[in-house]
Computed example of a mutant assay.
Amino acid sequence: MSNPRTLKDWFIALRPWSFSTSAIPVIATLAFVCFASHHDIDLGSSASAPDYANGFLSLLMIMLLHGGGNLVSDYYDHVRRVDLPGCPNGVHWISSGVFRPREILVYGLLLLAIGAAVGVLILFRSDIEVLWIGVLAVALPLGYPWLKAHALGDVDILLCFAVLPALGTCFVMTGVYYLPVIFLSLPYGLLTVSILHANNTRDRANDRRAGLLTLPLILGWQASRRLYVAYLVVPYLLVLFVMGFYFGHSATILCLLLVLLTLPVAVRNIRAMMTAEAEDEQDIGVLDQMSAQLQLVFGLSYSLGFALASFV
């Protein structure tokens, strides 16, 4: 090691800028459960009063699992020679020598273990019935490198950062599986998947060299661009459906209005993708970051809308 590591180095290795993708599903579900409890929405005959402590423990757990999953993924990308010096994704803490590969792996596994311990605490506070979600929440980050290499990364991300945390958070807060929260998770979940898709579309050449088979490599440039646009347009259509037809509660118009305020960010991202040249990956070099910005502002607006509607 040429330089001693600082706390900042250890923190940056977690890729903390990506944590909004794991936090939003829990925050949005917390806001929805609050909304449902204030407006007597029937979550099920056996639903209990919301346990907000379990909700916040779920937020801590998923962020620990996310950080650990990032590190394990970085380790395996290094081993498979995906992240070489100068690779476009900016992950360089192993290739630059700041960390040894094994340190990153142990760091990631430690965070996954701590996250699992928090999950056990949540189980004691709720019900063993939700254990299967916790098992998947640990297994899917560990399996992400293989799934990404076989064009299944989008499915993994949608499950990890939308469907499972929404379903699990709602259960540990209320004691019931309220299946409509799966549908409610899709708007921000698809935007989260758009981050990965933008990343994989940019990294086509690098992933091809590494022997990976990501979705953009299968679809090709034009179809990948259209899929990215769909990932951004469909969430707004889903919100319109949810707000206009599902709950039928006038207070939810707040959620719709706040979400619509984020449309200019979506239009900016769509324009960036559709005007990019296939030969020049730098045209979309920061589109994954731009997609993360959209996911954050959309997710916070979506959550704030439910939170405000709770008191209208």
Rank of each mutant, 00 (worst) to 15 (best):
H38Q: 15
R225E: 09
L238K: 09
K8E: 02
S301T: 04
V26G: 05
A116W: 14
W132A: 05
Y246S: 13
L215C: 00
E103Y: 11
N89V: 08
P264G: 01
V239A: 02
V229K: 11
V82F: 06
H66A: 04
L294K: 05
G143S: 13
V91D: 15
Y188C: 12
E277P: 00
S303W: 12
L213R: 14
A139S: 11
S310M: 07
N70I: 09
H78S: 08
S291P: 14
C160Q: 15
G220P: 14
S126N: 06
P145I: 13
G97W: 05
S73R: 08
G97I: 06
F241T: 07
G134H: 02
N54W: 06
L60N: 02
Y178M: 08
V181E: 02
L304R: 01
L308K: 02
I157R: 05
D207L: 09
L64D: 00
L300F: 06
Y228Q: 10
I94N: 03
G115L: 07
I182L: 09
T174R: 09
F241K: 04
W221N: 10
W93E: 14
A139N: 11
P25D: 00
Q293C: 05
I133F: 15
S185E: 02
C34A: 02
V163I: 14
V163F: 03
G189Y: 06
G90W: 09
L140G: 05
A278M: 07
L190P: 15
G143V: 09
V267T: 09
V234H: 08
P16Y: 07
G244V: 06
E103P: 11
S2M: 12
I133N: 10
F11K: 04
R268T: 05
S96Y: 05
Y144I: 05
F161D: 08
A162S: 03
I253G: 04
A309I: 03
